[in-house]
């Protein structure tokens, strides 16, 4: 019984963490049809900015997190105006922006490498101690991650469902031309979505690095998993992505316990293959005609 609670706790933490890095990716794909391959680099950047703000500038952890969100949000905005906007009218936008953001990600990672060096660094934003119930041991850091993730998801659901910006984002994602005909300025919506996605990447990066450590290429693994989750859920589906992230986090925790850490990722991929054979457009995806 205790083992199950322990697995559930670590699975939920992992799932929540995946969910946050996935939401940003799903939002951007959903509204722009853009796979942002620099998302992983933004995760790393967010982690390092928080570290820099706390360790070198002596800022409060909350301010460190806010600084990370601001910087990554601005970089997201920059990606829109420097890369996405000039390519938007091209017929090959999806391919072009895919390759361009790989380049942008490489630039960001190398700037981090140059500024902070290649050595692993500890993330100072860390809650010591643990919640102990009987023999179950749940680190406070995991609880913090879970709490932040839940809060963020609630805030995002509110933003998408109840605010004017959220309605504009959903309308643009569902039919870009129709949104324009309603008076939505889609260029501005795109810029806002990329800034928002950057801010979410920062939070995700701070959390991921607090469980392991800071490395310039630390975003690769979470981004790969976020991408897998997006595909399983159906590309661009934000709520589906959250559900899929939590399920995959739990599954990974169970696989790690039952079969060992080395098999967990392989099982994850096996599951993705199975899902895609069964439903090629993802679990919650819409069946749609692929543009050729």
């Amino acid at each position: 019984m205790d083992v199950i609670v322990q697995i559930l706790a670590s699975g939920l933490t992992m799932g929540a963490m995946y969910a946050i890095s996935t939401i940003g990716l799903a939002l951007v794909y959903g509204s722009l049809n853009m796979l942002n391959m620099s998302h992983g680099a933004l995760l790393a950047l967010g982690g390092y900015i928080c570290y820099f703000a706390m360790s070198h500038l002596g800022l409060h952890p909350v301010l460190g997190l806010i600084a990370a969100m601001l910087v990554c949000g601005l970089v997201g905005l920059g990606i829109y105006y420097v890369a996405a906007q000039p390519m938007l009218r091209s017929a090959n936008f999806e391919t072009q922006i895919f390759i361009a953001t790989i380049g942008i990600g490489a630039i960001i990672e190398n700037v981090i490498l140059r500024l902070f060096g290649p050595q692993p660094t500890a993330q100072p934003l860390n809650l010591p101690g643990a919640l102990v119930i009987g023999t179950v041991h749940i680190p406070n850091q995991n609880l913090l991650i879970l709490g932040v993730a839940l809060g963020l998801m609630a805030a995002l659901a509110y933003l998408l469902q109840r605010t004017r910006l959220g309605r504009a984002i959903r309308a643009t994602a569902q039919n870009r031309e129709a949104a324009q005909l309603m008076g939505v300025r889609v260029g501005v919506v795109y810029a806002q979505v990329l800034a928002l996605s950057g801010g979410l990447a920062a939070i995700s990066g701070v959390m991921v690095s607090s469980l392991s450590s800071l490395l310039p290429n630390m975003g690769g693994d979470p981004m790969l998993k976020a991408f897998i989750i997006c595909v399983v859920a159906g590309l661009g589906n934000v709520y589906g992505a959250v559900a899929a992230a939590i399920v995959l986090g739990l599954l990974e925790a169970f696989a790690q316990y039952m079969l060992g850490v080395r098999y967990s990722f392989a099982i994850l991929l096996l599951l993705v293959i199975a899902v895609l054979i069964w439903r090629p457009y993802g679990l919650f995806g819409r069946r749609q005609v692929v543009r050729l």
Binding site: Q174, N175, A178
Partner: peptide, 28 residues
């Protein structure tokens, strides 16, 4: 106001949400 060919509704929104999108701009 342009009502496009083939309607171009927002497929995942309800009827009322679609209608309210028509009044997206502040004056409307």
């Amino acid at each position: 106001i342009h009502v496009p060919q083939g309607d171009m509704l927002f497929p995942e929104m309800t009827v009322i949400e679609n209608l309210l999108m028509g009044a997206y701009l502040p004056e409307a």
